[in-house]
Nucleic acid binder design. Structure first.
Lengths: 247, 247
DNA sequence: CAAATAAATTCACATATATGTACATTTTCC
DNA sequence: GGAAAATGTACATATATGTGAATTTATTTG
């Protein structure tokens, strides 16, 4: 069950992140197609909690810096080491495609850092973007770091859907692809989940965190180059990852 | 009406900002005394939207960097000019008390930047903290920037409560205090709202934004010094505020 | 300055939603 | 390795909550 009003809070914040200016109750209500009365209640709640204020007269609401203060407190804990951002930054620059750091979230994989391609046609992904863990290169690079038992436990929760022509639609299909990935030395995906999208990924364990790096883009552009992109990823990780025993 | 599930989202985020480590469903449910089933729904919603993930096996949930990314986008718009933070930083250092920048939010005043005193006994305030606009020095410093009509409109929505012995409990009382403040050259408050708390504030218009600066602390410590603190605030603003025509 | 229009706010009720209960899964402990 | 405890998940139902309609307040227009 999705908690509607919880989702609405996120929607409102995303709305402000997008328009980047104060908005009145009426504007917000109209934008989402919400009743004024409901919008009123939501805005009142957020205001009461100190997350919205009125920066200038009659211009409406805008988030207080409290969001930022809280997000900073949350993110200063075990941030990704700086070299991981350097990593995807370099990869994106060299390949011209979108590069990301990915982490597990149940049966899904979440993008926790992204550097977007600058190409007009590109893989559009943002931090927080989620994809099925079994049907993507990045996800499978995470699964490779699981024990057999842990993988089985994940499999039990997966709803196998035919997202595209090559989506693995059974546990055995996924396990086979994982074995192939090990043999190959990297994970790949050709429209397994998103149409026209191809990518290469490798596992990126950091401390006890299981992460992966992925470079992805339109199939026609990146498809033929997947092996060399994978090699580039491996080389770049080798170059940037500190060699200390502190892993 | 307060929207419970919207408030709960904020509570959860504040929880993570406080404990600064991943938490399992059970831990969160127990912490808030929420039913497991409800907690499950809420966590599922936040996860689905890409705001929570599972950083390491069986350690539970933690917010994704998406919060930070969004907060940054929101806050990069018209941030406070850097000298305002310098201002409260200097004021706090020189007075040893808590100094803040305050903005209006209906009948309340919101703290949008805070530098806390380092004293053991101090005014504990955080970004997002809200106080009644009419019953605080910082709030009245905002009201001074309103036109008479705008103030009247605010007064109509205020519920006058006797927070402390000197709380103004009528429109006329507030207006009188505003006139006194103008004559005095600064706004002050002695336990008008919070017991044992005294403070001095002056208006701080920036562009078309109506803000105020306040220095506040325990009455016994700051009380006798309010006039000199007010003078210090004025001098410090004079020193730091750019003199350019761009105001 | 008055009338008209738009925005914000309140409130009672139908309905969408949070929850208690039951079940499944995972982990711990012996 | 098996039983017990803890944790996570599903679902029907009573209830807290979102909403449409009405009212008040603010803003624009003639």
């Amino acid at each position: 069950m999705i908690v509607r009003q919880a989702a609405n809070v996120l929607e409102i914040m995303e709305f402000f992140a997008q328009v980047k200016k104060p908005a009145t109750l009426a504007e917000i209500a109209d934008h989402f197609g919400w009743p004024r009365s409901s919008t009123f209640n939501l805005l009142a709640t957020l205001s009461e909690k100190g997350y919205l204020y009125e920066p200038r007269p009659r211009a409406g609401f805008y988030p207080t810096p409290r969001w930022l203060a809280m997000a900073r407190m949350i993110s200063e804990v075990e941030p990704l080491p700086p070299w991981t951002h350097q990593l995807i930054s370099d990869l994106s620059a060299e390949t011209g495609e979108t590069a990301s750091i990915v982490a597990p979230a149940g049966v899904m994989a979440v993008f926790i850092d992204v550097v977007e391609s600058k190409a007009a046609i590109r893989y559009f992904a943002t931090i927080g973007h989620r994809v099925p863990i079994h049907a993507t290169a990045s996800g499978r690079a995470l699964l490779l770091q699981y024990s057999q038992e842990e993988r089985d436990s994940v499999y039990r929760k997966i709803e196998f859907k035919q997202y595209g022509p090559s989506t693995p639609i059974s546990i055995e299909a996924v396990e086979t692809e994982l074995r192939n990935s090990i043999a190959r030395g990297y994970c790949q995906s050709f429209a397994d989940y998103s149409r026209d999208l191809a990518g290469a990924a490798i596992p990126l364990p950091i401390g006890d965190r299981r992460l992966s790096v992925v470079v992805a883009g339109p199939e026609f552009r990146i498809g033929p180059k997947v092996p060399e992109v994978a090699a580039l990823i491996a080389r770049t990780v080798d170059r940037l990852r500190p060699k200390t025993s502190a892993a």
